[in-house]
């Protein structure tokens, strides 16, 4: 399609300051418009490119919206059964200690069906990176309640809002695993504004670098949106996320260099 608007003389190859990394496969992402998955995929691939470790990286994708992550990331990957990614990554990293190994998991995968695999991989201090996308809902299956769905939040299986008396409480799995001695670095980030994206990328870099020193699990939670599941526009969903998700899932570092970060309320606004 012909681009209808103004082009300046600056638009030439030598002036490119940002373009999509070649480590993302050249195909459209399967995610809904405005979904944070795409940003995190890109940050991960940009980081691998900057570290020049494409040939040394083995990724594990989950079951959920990002089940096809391996189609978009131009690296060797394995698709795990629902929730089992940390078990796969455990064995891969133990048998390939010089490879960079990560799992990429959603909230249902990591914090519901895969809770045991998550907690035990963390507790053993496995030396891989977990990227955890928390949008408080099951996106792929059509907006059902997740372990991280907020109290009162509507989903297709909590149509009148999550009633914690009957449906249980949202699980702050990130805080839970941060208390385990095998976990070295835990942070909670977001990707809906440029400054948040920059911080998340730094966190991904830090987490991958940590694997060189065999210090244990690096765990990055990205609080993200699900505009389809939340039934909002992408921009509205990002605002709703700031107002509702961040107070319950406050952003910031939780554990750095094996030490829990002093508790201060880091309810961040954009």
């Amino acid at each position: 399609m012909e681009e209808p608007f103004v082009k300046t003389e600056i638009r030439k190859d030598e002036n490119i300051v940002y373009k999509r990394t070649d480590l993302l496969v050249d195909r459209p992402l399967s995610y809904c418009p405005g979904c944070g998955h795409g940003v995190v995929h890109r940050l991960l691939m940009e980081t691998l490119e900057e570290m020049d470790i494409q040939d040394k990286t083995i990724g594990v994708s989950p079951v959920g919206c990002s089940v096809l992550a391996y189609d978009f990331m131009n690296i060797d990957m394995l698709g795990a059964a629902h929730g089992r990614a940390p078990a796969l990554a455990t064995a891969i990293k133990r048998l390939w200690p010089d490879r960079f190994v990560f799992t990429y998991q959603g909230d249902g995968d990591l914090a519901a069906i895969g809770t045991a695999e998550t907690i035990h991989a963390c507790n053993r201090g496995e030396n891989f990176t977990i990227i955890f996308i928390n949008n408080g809902i099951y996106g792929m299956t059509g907006g059902q309640m997740a372990p991280t769905t907020l109290p009162g939040m509507r989903s297709s299986t909590s149509p009148y809002g999550r009633d914690v008396q009957t449906m249980g409480h949202p699980l702050k799995i990130t805080e839970l695993i941060s208390n385990l001695p095998g976990v070295h670095y835990v942070t909670r980030q977001a990707v809906h504004t440029p400054s948040h994206v920059r911080k998340t990328k730094k966190a991904i870099r830090k987490a991958l670098e940590q694997q060189k020193e065999s210090k244990g699990i690096a765990f990055i939670e990205v609080v993200s949106n699900c505009n389809s599941g939340w039934k909002m526009t992408p921009v509205q969903s990002n605002k709703w996320m700031e107002e509702n998700m961040f107070p319950f899932y406050p952003l910031g570092d939780i554990k750095v260099d094996g030490k829990l970060v002093e508790k201060k309320e880091v309810t961040e606004k954009a």
């Binding site: 681009e3 103004v6 600056i10 490119i16 300051v17 992402l29 418009p33 440029p194 994206v197 920059r198």
Partner: peptide
Amino acid sequence: AMKVNNDCTGCMNCAIVCPDGVITVYRG
């Protein structure tokens, strides 16, 4: 998304938040 003026500074913010990585940024 499309450009509607020539005030772009090449700050890359748009490209950085774009979930689909569809924006290339130039600065010069």
